[in-house]
Design a protein around this nucleic acid. Structure first.
Lengths: 112, 112
DNA sequence: CTTTCATATGAATTGACGCTCATATGATTG
DNA sequence: CAATCATATGAGCGTCAATTCATATGAAAG
């Protein structure tokens, strides 16, 4: 180490969130960190959609979409409702739009 | 498919961002979707830190931290400056704080 | 110029994860 | 109740990425 920075380190250390929170937070961002899941979320921006519609829209297997929807639902990013045989998924939260929006802004400014 | 939703699908499809943008965006969120990187970013909230300080703070190898800092720098989330032998890293952008903040808020409301 | 300190880097390993394929569940229809 | 449609799920496979270990770079000090 260059100098003795123990007091600074202790100060920084005291500001670090608890490990459990960090784990939850990185798990949340992992959900956005996948191309397919991001496309699913974007698909739901405008309106709710059934599984097969998303699959067709994204040109992917119903199974693949279903697996990812399960992950997204476990992370409380989407909800669903049943209507007969079909199940409609929708964005669970306005934070989804906000988080994606902030990420987009960062990209814009990067390219600037 | 339950009904004929072609017009809806076309509408949604036209709103989907380009594939390149989606790839960049998911790559960005991937950076936040790792416990170690998130802890590094949080460490830099208060002040810039040298590599060895971060390593000590997080109880990890200098090599592991250095690898992750390289990833974070490639993603324009951190910058660095040299001062003699030591290299100080700092947050590159206020969006880092904002994005993390939005993620945190989502978690809070979830637990509510 | 040699040594030392701070950091970077490359190769290898190990674990996580996204997709596929086959099959199961669950609701409607006849 | 059998058949069909929409969705869910489990196992298996291939890929990617986070860490480790060994080593390289690069600056300062003697």
């Amino acid at each position: 180490m260059p100098h003795n920075h123990d007091s600074l380190l202790n100060s920084v250390r005291s500001q670090l969130p608890k490990e459990e929170f960090l784990a939850d937070l990185s798990d949340l961002f992992k959900l956005f960190g996948d191309n397919t899941r991001l496309r699913i979320l974007y698909s739901l921006f405008e309106s709710e959609l059934c599984v097969c519609a998303i699959a067709e829209l994204l040109g992917m297997t119903q199974s693949a979409i279903s697996h990812q929807l399960k992950v997204l639902k476990a992370g409380n990013l989407v909800g669903n409702r049943r209507e007969g045989k079909t199940i409609y998924y929708f964005l669970a939260d306005d934070h989804v739009r906000t988080i994606i929006g902030q990420g987009s802004e960062h990209l814009m400014e990067e390219t600037r």
